[in-house]
Design a protein around this nucleic acid. Structure first.
Lengths: 223, 223
DNA sequence: ACAATAGTGTCTATCAGACAATATCCT
DNA sequence: AGGATATTGTCTGATAGACACTATTGT
């Protein structure tokens, strides 16, 4: 039984914009030196352009569901804790019609990126995406979405240690700092960083070993 | 010429949720003692319930336009600088069907509230609305929207003096502090408050007069 | 020994919170 | 004079940034 207004029309009888979700999936990629780089996962299109994965929200579907379905379907990956960012509503942003998009962000650890080739991993400098190839920018307004997503990730890493559990198992303060430096895109001083984080960490038995220098204590995020 | 996909369907041929905007219009009401109270403007319904003003977004319309139209049409008021808060997407939040709503907030000075009776002014304590009458809460999920809106206003007033220009013309630090106390819902110490704000203010020639006590310097927001 | 990293001590500048002293009006 | 408010001084505690010193490893 569908609801109808005074003129006998259901909600679906009125012309209205379509609703979509776009997802900026961020990750930190580490090279052999231990240096990290914040990256965003892009879809590569036949015409050489790139975009964030996105799709239309179905009737009765929650945004979080649409996000999970999109990431699973277009990239073959599973989201962990997608967050809503903001709504992009320029009626001309999509040439197919009036599409209002709710931008989302999620942070994935590099190790969960399985299935080579289904996506493109593009570095994010500060809050700007560097797309490889001729084209400098993404389809639609997706450059803006990446910028907002990167800013969100940076705020999130400002005070809390590894808020998205990107590190696998216990870690040293050096590893934690390299992660935060990658997300923030700046160098951090080890002593200040240590004092900011130490209260939110729990020491774990054992020591780091292998590399040069004094072995470091090993921690996990408290509680 | 409408865009069509491979199966010959336009975007509007797919079932999809409706899109709406809801607006939490906040203001600060001052009593004769100079004490202020953060309030939200509500629509009163025939069944005694109350809600925020809201309406459906039309095809080709921007969210900001829908907000302006809604506030003008339902309350007879004009928005100044509406901001997007977040999206409420529970498919069951509206009994008429699947309605996804983008919550907005705007702050209006009390003097711009003309046309008595078209609305209800409800005090907000902390981030909670106190609705007069039997019912304790608002329709739909509008209590949540008010909470987010109040939190937004409080963050906005944490460091910047009168960010929404609620004060009319030059003001004393006392008047500014009473405004911020009303929005934040807490008492502020005058000396600390002065030192936080003074750098962002410009002194204006003249002094306050009339009340008891030493006349105060008069300021406006810098730049 | 030397390079490299870990961990800690300390100094300075800044800032919030709190208290208080002085200044200047009104009644 | 006395009450009320404005304005400024000062003390304390917390914290960020910077520098440096000691500690402990591998080569």
């Amino acid at each position: 039984m569908v609801w109808r207004d005074d003129s006998g029309k259901a909600l679906s009888d009125y012309p209205r914009p379509s609703l979509a979700v776009d997802v900026a999936l961020l990750t930190v990629r580490f090279d052999d030196d231990g240096d990290g780089q914040l990256c965003v996962l892009l879809q590569q299109h036949d015409d050489g352009s790139a975009s964030l994965p996105g799709s239309f929200v179905r009737e009765g579907e929650r945004l979080a569901e649409a996000v999970r379905r999109t990431v699973q379907g277009k990239l073959g990956l599973t989201t962990r804790d997608p967050r809503q960012l903001s709504v992009f509503d320029d009626p001309g942003r999509d040439s197919r019609g009036h599409v209002v998009s709710v931008a989302h962000v999620d942070l994935l650890p590099e190790r969960e990126l399985a299935g080579e080739g289904a996506w493109l991993l593009s570095p994010v400098d500060g809050t700007t995406v560097r797309v490889p190839g001729r084209r400098r920018s993404l389809r639609y307004d997706h450059d803006q979405i990446v910028a907002v997503a990167a800013g969100w990730a940076q705020q999130r890493h400002a005070r809390r240690p590894d808020p998205s559990r990107l590190l696998d198992g216990p870690f040293t303060l050096r590893e934690l700092r390299l992660l935060h430096e990658a997300v923030l895109g700046v160098r951090l001083q080890k002593d200040t960083f240590r004092r900011q984080m130490i209260d939110r960490l729990e020491e774990v038995p054992g020591r780091s070993s292998g590399g040069p220098g004094r072995p470091a204590a090993v921690f996990r995020v408290a509680r």
